[in-house]
């Protein structure tokens, strides 16, 4: 049964992108275990405001696991110790009374800290802008069933498309590589007939952008897939490799 716990929260505080960050430990009493992790941070912020202190800046939006904003590295795991969830879906029942919980921002050169737990993830947007789309020639709307797509392929594309671009993959990767994100975004389009026409160009453009933005080289350790809140598979990385190498041989 959920009960009330007293915890200590050790949070990374950093005033701005250039400021020197440090850990600050706050005591929080009587936290309901049925609360989500973000609700706990809200309660902590209320407490900080009542003490006339600066509340902790953190990203959050939908609070239902689909927007990918809640970037927090909790006790050594992106999105906390539970698997296949985002931080907003993490509950305080995963923690015990008296526990000290360490909360850090994503740490990767391509994700600079803006303030406290907020990081700049525009790098992912830039990768998307480089090729994460299908060029559409305007004209009449084609019939939805005109292009048959086998179910297994549609399923695999859908699995890839479940990526919410949260950045947990690059945050967890010891190489700071965004390969799982890029692979998912390339796969969701390259698998389908509509995206296939540009698959070589897309693989090249998105990978080139990833390298350019300072992400690392993938070494297939698999930490990304293990920490992915949407359980995107490593096999998408193999597809990206295949499409990229194929594109280079076709040049």
């Amino acid at each position: 049964m959920d009960s009330y716990i007293d915890i200590k929260v050790r949070v990374w505080r950093q005033a701005g992108p250039k400021a020197q960050g440090h850990f600050e430990t706050y005591e929080l009493k009587h936290v309901f275990q049925g609360a989500s992790f973000l609700e706990m941070i809200d309660i902590l912020n209320e407490q900080l405001i009542s003490e006339h202190k600066d509340p902790i800046a953190f990203d959050h939006d939908c609070r239902e696991g689909i927007c990918g904003m809640c970037s927090m590295y909790v006790n050594g795991h992106p999105h906390g110790p539970d698997s296949a969830i985002t931080t907003c879906q993490l509950h305080m029942r995963k923690f015990h009374d008296g526990e000290t919980i360490t909360v850090e921002p994503w740490r990767s050169r391509a994700f600079p800290v803006i303030k406290d737990l907020m990081v700049d993830r525009q790098a992912y947007d830039k990768i998307m802008q480089a090729g994460g789309f299908v060029s559409v020639n305007t004209g009449g709307v084609p019939d939805a069933n005109a292009i048959p797509i086998p179910k297994p392929i549609a399923d695999e594309a859908m699995d890839a498309a479940s990526c919410i671009g949260c950045g947990a993959c690059a945050a967890a990767c010891k190489n700071g590589s965004a390969m799982l994100f890029v692979a998912a975004k390339v796969s969701q389009l390259n698998l389908l007939p509509q995206g296939k026409a540009e698959k070589h160009q897309r693989a090249k453009a998105m990978l080139q952008k990833m390298d350019e933005l300072g992400f690392g080289n993938c070494t297939n350790t698999g930490a990304c897939a293990a920490e992915c809140p949407k359980q995107v598979s490593l096999t998408h990385i193999a597809r990206l490799n295949r499409d990229f190498i194929g594109a280079k041989f076709c040049d």
Partner: peptide, 12 residues
């Protein structure tokens, strides 16, 4: 890869 990881390491 070390450079891509950034200068700040995770505490945990």
């Amino acid at each position: 890869n070390r450079r891509a990881r950034g200068n700040d390491r995770y505490a945990v």
